[in-house]
Write a protein that binds this DNA or RNA. Sequence first.
DNA 1: GATGATCCTTGACCCAGATCAAGCGCGCGA
DNA 2: TCGCGCGCTTGATCTGGGTCAAGGATCATC
Lengths: 248, 248
Amino acid sequence: MLNEDTLSISQNCADCPIRHRAVCARCESDELERLEDMKYYRNFEAGQTVIWSGDKMDFVGSVVSGIATLTQTMEDGRTQMVGLLLPSDFVGRPGRDGAAYDVVATTDLVMCCFRKKPFEEMMGRTPHIAQRLLEMTLDELDAAREWMLVLGRKTAREKIASLLSIIARRDASLKLAGSDGPMVFDLPLTREAMADYLGLTLETVSRQMSALKKDGVIQLEGKRHVTVPDFTRLMEEAGDDTDGGMLA
Amino acid sequence: MLNEDTLSISQNCADCPIRHRAVCARCESDELERLEDMKYYRNFEAGQTVIWSGDKMDFVGSVVSGIATLTQTMEDGRTQMVGLLLPSDFVGRPGRDGAAYDVVATTDLVMCCFRKKPFEEMMGRTPHIAQRLLEMTLDELDAAREWMLVLGRKTAREKIASLLSIIARRDASLKLAGSDGPMVFDLPLTREAMADYLGLTLETVSRQMSALKKDGVIQLEGKRHVTVPDFTRLMEEAGDDTDGGMLA
DNA sequence: GATGATCCTTGACCCAGATCAAGCGCGCGA
DNA sequence: TCGCGCGCTTGATCTGGGTCAAGGATCATC
């Protein structure tokens, strides 16, 4: 429960792995220098809670490496994941003090944090930071709305296929593109986390994973290592427009 | 299917009903003048489609009066509402050409539209427009995430209660606040639209409305006119933290 | 005042996914 | 090497909400 895991890895923005995709993507080197003054790194272990819903937040920041989840919980314990934070994703909301959601590290996690006050001030004086954040927020809003369709209208099988295709697509975009060969990746989520993402129980997740495997839509090695022999097939199972993701 | 309903009501920004809440909330009068050059009003009748998903959009804009819905539809016809657009809400995404969702007028609707190109340029040169849009987008993102919890984890009865409490709260905030008396409002949505919002069928919506009525949580006069004698009770039925909305 | 059309309600039945329960397999600490 | 815990699978049963079907209420048009 102690988040004192603050490790000041001396690291500078110039060779940051998320340099070109995070909030700071469009900053010039003099602006990066100013950002470096207000920034610090924090490390979290898999399973650790980064922020509790309702806590006061005195920082905002970016995921540098690892994966975290945004979740909302009702009093009786029902929980729903409302966001999946990947490297370069932004955490926290300028202009608001309390955290609205729990943030939990799913894997080991490194975050680049900015002290909130100075960051807000800088955002006021540096338009393209706000513009970049707007862009990122609009993308997140689109993702959230896509997810509303999944939660509201898709069957359990379609939900699982949707999640797998999202993770597969993201993984492919990291490991530089190309190659129509089978897609291979490791699931970063437990069955329970998948259930929380999809509004299902973990038993249903397990059953549908088994069904997709039996039907040859995916292959499983162990519980987490997934091979997708035919991505188009997976997309069909997800109920998505088959040609959907192919533009852009 | 003809949207030629363009009616140039001569109207100026100074006495616009959403002046202080829309994207232009923080604009000075000289900036408003520039906005007036690129703006025009459009009227739609209840039921008319404002934008088809996938269409090229050459404008962005704000809802001035009336209500519209943002919906997503799968090939087989399943549809999910992903946003409810109320006066002052923003439509369209700067920096993207195609519309991502269908926008449909639920009631008669007046929109204040800006030609997209000039608006984008102005946004580049006027930081507080982007900042205001960021603020609004972050609010929408929060609303979308709240809705993900509703869609993923709530029962039919809780879903209905959640929707009613949202509409009741919004209505109260318009009719200036105060008064612990019963809240009274008209539902702006058909049972089918409510179903699309909540990921239910219209039959289930109807049954749960009847159940809430029978249990005295709401009173119904006709199909649309709702009285909420005890808002706290409604919030409990929604499964929300009873004291949730009371801060701020 | 009949004739639809639209929107809504209610009933009967069914099924996808939840719930309850048992057990497997793998990694880890003693 | 054992045992124990965690993550996962699988089976049996239950149920909330979907599906199908039959009207009712209100309104506009003839």
